[in-house]
Every structure is written in C-alpha cells, then in structure tokens.
C-alpha cells in the first residue's frame, strides 16, 4: 500500500511541478539561467561581485530606484559587500561609515527646529532619489521605478530575471508600434497583441518597459580592474540585488546543513530504537 501511495504522491508532485510555470504572468521569454556563486545548497555570495554590484547600483540604478529597506550598516553585515571580520558591529566599519558620509540626509536641527542637511551615518537608510511617487513618475514618463530592496524575490526567476531584463533590450521587431518613450524588452511581462501589426499568431514575446536601457559597456569603472562589460555589470548588480533581498541567505543555508545532519542522525537513532522496541512484537 505504501508503495502505491508513494506513486500517487509522486504523480501529485509532478502535477504541482507542472503547475508552477503557469503562475508566471503573460508570455515573456524565459529568463536566462546564470550560474550564480550563491546557487545550490553550499553557494555563497562572491564578496568582490557584491562590491562591484553595489557600485553599479549606486552610480546607475539609484538615480531612479530607491532601496529604502536597506541601511548603510547592512553593507558591512556578515556576508555583505563590505563585511570585515574586524568589525563585527557593522556600524563601526570605517568603509561603511565613509560610504554613508558621502550622502546628505535631511534632519531636524534640535535648537531651531529647522530642517537641515547632515551627512548620513551608518544607521541611516539608503536615501530615495525622489521625494514621492508623483515626482518619480513625472521624471520617468509616467512609469514608477519600483523599490529594489526585495525586488529579487518579488519577480519569478529572481536574479536570473533581473539579469535577463538588463541585458535583454534590443530593437523592437518590425511590425511593433511602441510609444517612443518606451522600450521593447522580450523578458518584461506584457501583452503586445494590440501594438502588433504582423501575423497575429506570432506576437513577439515580452512587453514594453518604461525604463531606458540603464547599462552599457563601461558604464562604471570597477575598482578591482574587472572589465566593465554590459554583461558583467548586469550580473554584478543582479547578485547585489539578490543579497539586498535575502541578506541572510548564506547564514540560512549554513544552518540548514547542520540541521539536516542533526535530523538525519536523530532519524537513524529513532529508527534503530523503533526496531529494538518492536523486535518481539509481530505487527
């Protein structure tokens, strides 16, 4: 009987597995699979990559996108881009302090009550580029650049999707009429059938996005000498965004390994006890 149930369970599992792709919206292109350093049960963030990714974020993306759930101190947290074992309390990490001090944040002068600007500290959140949603839309042709803090978890495909989106821009196929302020991207979900004058059976994949292609070769200059190709920048910033969305990922996988070893041993012991207890009982 157990065997029969296992077969049913396996069939059910398969059915559920095939159900998953249907959850993706529209019919955009499947994201390209990237061999991330943090993939797999033993994967880790590549610290140099996170540092480069932060640079791309700061110099390019942060002009339009907020990441308001992050504080500067997070950059120095364990497994973070600027973690240094010498500074277990990331608030004291001099590198983090220096990064924070490059920003001005508004604050209240406690003597006069006036709003003043002061340099940010490691405890401050990343400042947002726009004061509110209307300002963000007004500067972006009506489109709203989403907050990037958890974006890598908020899209099917995660970092693969972000990487594919950033590298996926190309000329709109002939027959597609799009608003000149928008851009064709085969990985962006959408429905292009109304803008398509070609064969209705072959509507192009993807959609039109309000974000102009943000990256190009040499958009940034890396401090570690890595060649700043479009592909490299896209990978680095996607890895950084994955870290931003799930900063505890490495800690989680490491703990999972110990927990599994423990549970396997415990199951073995319990099974042996079970056999011992039942050895004289027919059942």
């Amino acid at each position: 009987m157990l065997r029969k149930f296992s077969i049913i369970a396996a069939v059910a599992g398969l059915l559920v597995a095939t159900a998953a792709p249907a959850l993706a919206a529209g019919h955009p292109e499947e994201p390209k699979k990237v061999d991330w350093s943090f993939n797999g049960p033993f994967g880790k963030f590549d610290q140099a990559q996170l540092q480069r990714g932060y640079k791309v974020y700061r110099e390019v993306c942060s002009a339009c996108h907020a990441a308001s759930l992050l504080s500067f101190r997070n950059l120095g947290d364990k497994n973070g881009p600027f973690y240094d074992a010498k500074y277990p309390n990331s608030n004291n990490n001099p590198y983090v302090k220096a990064i924070a001090a490059e920003y001005q944040v508004s604050s209240i002068d406690e003597e006069t009550g006036d709003t003043v600007q002061r340099p940010a500290t490691s405890a401050d959140r990343f400042p947002s580029p726009f004061p509110n949603e209307y300002a963000a839309r007004a500067s972006n042709g009506g489109a709203l650049p989403p907050d990037l803090s958890v974006l890598a978890k908020a899209r099917e495909g995660g970092p693969d999707y972000i990487y594919s989106l950033l590298t996926g821009y190309h000329e709109a196929p002939a027959g597609l009429t799009i608003d000149p302020t928008k851009h064709y991207n085969p990985y962006f979900p959408g429905d292009l059938s109304s803008a398509w004058s070609g064969d209705p059976k072959h509507v192009p994949h993807g959609g039109v996005i309000g974000m102009p292609p943000p990256l190009a070769d040499d958009r940034v200059t890396y401090d570690d000498g890595t060649k700043a190709t479009l592909d490299q920048e896209a990978k680095d910033v996607s890895a950084f965004l994955m870290w931003a969305a799930e900063p505890k990922m490495i800690e989680r996988k490491e703990m999972g390994f110990s927990v599994l070893i423990y549970l396997l041993l415990m199951s073995g012991l319990l099974y042996a006890s079970y056999r011992t207890v039942w050895r004289n009982e027919s059942h």
Partner: peptide, 27 residues
C-alpha cells in the same frame, strides 16, 4: 513505547522535509 517511538521516528523524517523547505527553498 510502541506508538511513541514509531511516531517519533516519523516526526523526525517529516522534519527533514520541513527543513529542506525552510533552509533551501523557503519561497
């Protein structure tokens, strides 16, 4: 001890499945 030990073993195996989800595919 008969049912408790068998339940204990089953719970432990179930926790393995649980842990795989929590630690390796939480979302």
């Amino acid at each position: 001890p008969y049912a408790t030990i068998k339940d204990g073993f089953a719970v432990s195996v179930f926790l393995i499945l649980f842990a795989i989800f929590v630690f390796y595919m939480p979302n």
